[in-house]
Design a protein around this nucleic acid. Structure first.
Lengths: 244, 244
DNA sequence: AAGTGGTCTAGACCACCAT
DNA sequence: TGGTGGTCTAGACCACTTT
């Protein structure tokens, strides 16, 4: 076993060093999403530390959402499910007892472009590298309620333009076809008035209120891999957040 | 020492029982915001459990933001600072290198009213109990950018109408004058078009975009104590959120 | 029965803070 | 110097899952 041993000279405690080592094995795809990682006893033996310290390291990663632990079964690399946190933000339950419904989606266009400064900055890529620009609409009950403008690196997502993306969530595609799981994201929200083009697509009147959401989605290593700008119908948009 | 001992028959582990017991002492104001609580050794002795288990209980509460621990000093009841999380949501750094500025505030009116169903429901109070309704504007560089409509229980906040509230943050007042610290809050955001009255106050045109934020603020025991509805100028509003 | 994680103990040693 | 929390050990016993 070629174990990358822990460093006594490092001022970081063992449990944090181990947590980073585990994250490293996930980042480099040694351990993939959903896979079981070695047991507490194996890790303790491999790194030459006590089981208690291993437990502490694993606890940190569970807290961060990187790992899942199941008593009697094992410890697994977590598979973040963004479709859930996405739908949380829509008032699907607004004035109706409807069941939750996954929004439909339709790709309007995918083009290869040179990124402008904002996009290359957000995606942390070289401005000379090309990116895909995808325009997409999302629907509920067959009516468009969100327009999305999505930018991703051509290099990382080479070939995505040949896939069938209609009616699919993108993040599972990123994960399964391009080994790029989305781990976390940040969003910026602001209210705007609908442009005439947006209003026409969304079936509302120009200058009606819309919510503009900018999102940067990150994979392992806090690497940004997608930038998107969404315009949502104001009357269907309700964002819920807990502040602690 | 009248120690409420832990329950072996309870299926909850000791460390969770202890965490709840500590939260109870904070809720009933035995231990107040900012106060130091007994040391690990004292708690272990008092409850008849090992120090390791106490450490685990305290770790849970640190994670929840209830406690703060300082090596060499002690463990303290955390004082949530909402002014910070509030200002996070405004684009004070938008297109300018300005330093962060606490918004000014001016109370337009405080009235005693009977709550409607929505408000008595949100505040979980009897519909026959009276509430204060406060209208307030918040300013930056002496220009209004948010209109607030705030509802609080007359009983809990008896006498607040006699205080000088202009240019003050409300949550420190709740905490210091009424022993009601705000621990957490939930918000609902949606985009709207400015009404003519709102537009006049905010210095924008009717139907310009505004952000509507509804907030329920909770004190200890998840008890709602304030409901507020804010209308913010769309061009000055930018909400930032991290999704994990 | 064997292996997993979950809880708990009773220590040890360290780093930090006050006095 | 004594008290605090932070790290770490080397076990024990339990609950759960799989074979």
């Amino acid at each position: 076993m070629i174990s990358s041993n822990l460093d006594l000279k490092n001022d970081k405690p063992f449990y944090l060093q181990l947590a980073e080592a585990i994250k490293g094995r996930i980042t480099d795809n040694t351990w993939r999403l959903g896979m079981m990682i070695p047991s507490e006893n194996e890790l303790a033996k491999e790194y030459g530390i006590s089981v208690g310290t291993v437990k502490k390291a694993l606890g940190v990663l569970v807290q961060e959402g990187v790992l899942l632990r199941r008593q009697g079964k094992g410890t697994f690399v977590a598979s973040p499910d963004f479709s859930k946190s996405f739908s949380r933000f829509f008032r699907y339950d607004w004035k109706s007892g409807n069941t939750v419904e996954t929004p439909g989606s339709k790709v309007l266009s995918i083009k290869v472009i040179r990124p402008d400064d904002i996009i290359s900055d957000k995606l942390q890529i070289d401005p000379n590298q090309q990116v895909f620009r995808m325009k997409r609409i999302r629907t509920t009950q067959n009516k468009p309620f969100v327009i999305e403008d999505i930018y991703i690196s051509c290099e990382r997502f080479r070939g995505i333009e040949t896939l069938t993306l209609d009616q699919r969530l993108l993040y599972p595609v990123y994960n399964e076809k391009f080994s790029t799981p989305i781990i976390w994201a940040e969003e910026y929200l602001q209210p705007e008035s609908a442009s005439s083009e947006a209003a026409e697509i969304l079936g509302i009147r120009p200058n009606n209120p819309v919510m503009c959401v900018e999102r940067i989605a990150y994979t392992h290593g806090d690497l940004p891999v997608e930038w998107r700008r969404s315009i949502g119908r104001g009357d269907l948009f309700r964002y819920h957040i807990i502040i602690r």
